[in-house]
């Protein structure tokens, strides 16, 4: 019983020593990338029209943001991604949990889910355009569809793989089926559900960007990247790519943070 405090002290002591230096480790990769990029850009191996230096690109990024049009494109893409994600999550989580709680039900649709999950969502874009036209809705629906499959699959999987021992424990305490479902299965599935939500928003962003490039639209980062490429405005193209990357990374971090706070027991 007395081992806990001793352990805690030992752990914090060993951490405090190395922590200060280790915190900057992730920056090294970034610096190396920018360094290589800069070297290649000024070496003359690549046509400077195709590859501006990192500084020029960052300058274009700041200029684009300040001039306002990049912000509008960014906002539109974010809005579409979140709309698609919300749609997918609202339908996907309850559907996945329901499917997962009946093994027979899940087995009967498992093939469909696996099949469409393995089909690149971009291959379905033309089909969706046929049904929903080339408006804003179609982009959101396509992205929502691809996110939906991931969310359904993960939520169902989380319920199916709930710890049998916890279900038995609830049963021994006299819980009925509904209580076991809402008090145990739902919570057991949450860590896996969050993996689905996180992959869901990532794929939603991917599909929104692709849809903006190929379906045609007035605004959006995808549209901006392809337009900049068409007129060889490479600085703006790279700047927009960087911004898209930043968006994707931030979304992932946001979800990880929420997940860590909400699913505090995960992995413990």
């Amino acid at each position: 019983m007395t081992t806990t405090p001793r352990l805690a002290i030992r752990r914090s002591r060993s951490r405090s020593g190395a922590a200060t230096g280790d915190r900057w480790l992730p920056l090294i990769g970034l610096l190396v990338l920018f360094g290589l990029w800069w070297l290649i850009a000024i070496s003359g191996w690549v046509n400077p029209v195709l590859l501006p230096t990192p500084l020029t690109t960052l300058g274009a990024l700041v200029k684009g943001i300040l001039s306002g049009t990049m912000v509008t494109d960014f906002g539109t893409t974010v809005l579409r991604t979140f709309a698609a994600f919300a749609l997918a999550a609202l339908v996907g989580v309850p559907l996945g949990v329901a499917l997962g709680s009946s093994e027979k039900l899940y087995r009967s649709v498992e093939f469909l889910i696996d099949f469409f999950r393995s089909t690149p969502a971009s291959a379905l874009i033309p089909m969706f355009v046929l049904f929903f036209g080339v408006n804003n809705l179609s982009k959101v629906v396509i992205a929502a569809f691809s996110a939906l499959l991931l969310i359904v699959f993960n939520s169902a999987y989380g319920v199916i793989h709930a710890k049998q021992s916890r279900i038995l424990a609830a049963q021994a305490m006299g819980a009925n089926r509904w209580q076991i479902f809402k008090d145990v299965l739902l919570f057991e599935s949450l860590p896996q559900t969050f993996i689905g939500l996180r992959s869901g928003i990532s794929i939603a962003l991917v599909i929104v960007i692709v849809a903006e490039m190929f379906i045609g639209t007035e605004q959006g980062l995808g549209k901006r990247i392809i337009d900049a490429q068409q007129i060889l405005n490479v600085q703006d193209m790279y700047a927009s790519i960087l911004l898209t990357g930043l968006l994707g990374y931030s979304l992932n971090m946001l979800f990880l943070t929420v997940e860590k706070r909400l699913i505090h027991w995960s992995g413990k």
């Binding site: 021992s165 424990a169 008090d183």
Partner: peptide, 29 residues
């Protein structure tokens, strides 16, 4: 009315509930 103590406490307690809520669970049910 039965009480059951499992071999593997880690997989039998509910980690999303505090110890208090874990103990209260059979009553709440």
């Amino acid at each position: 009315r039965i009480g059951y103590v499992f071999q593997n406490y880690r997989d039998a307690l509910f980690p999303w509930l505090t110890a208090y809520d874990n103990i209260a669970y059979p009553l709440r049910v």
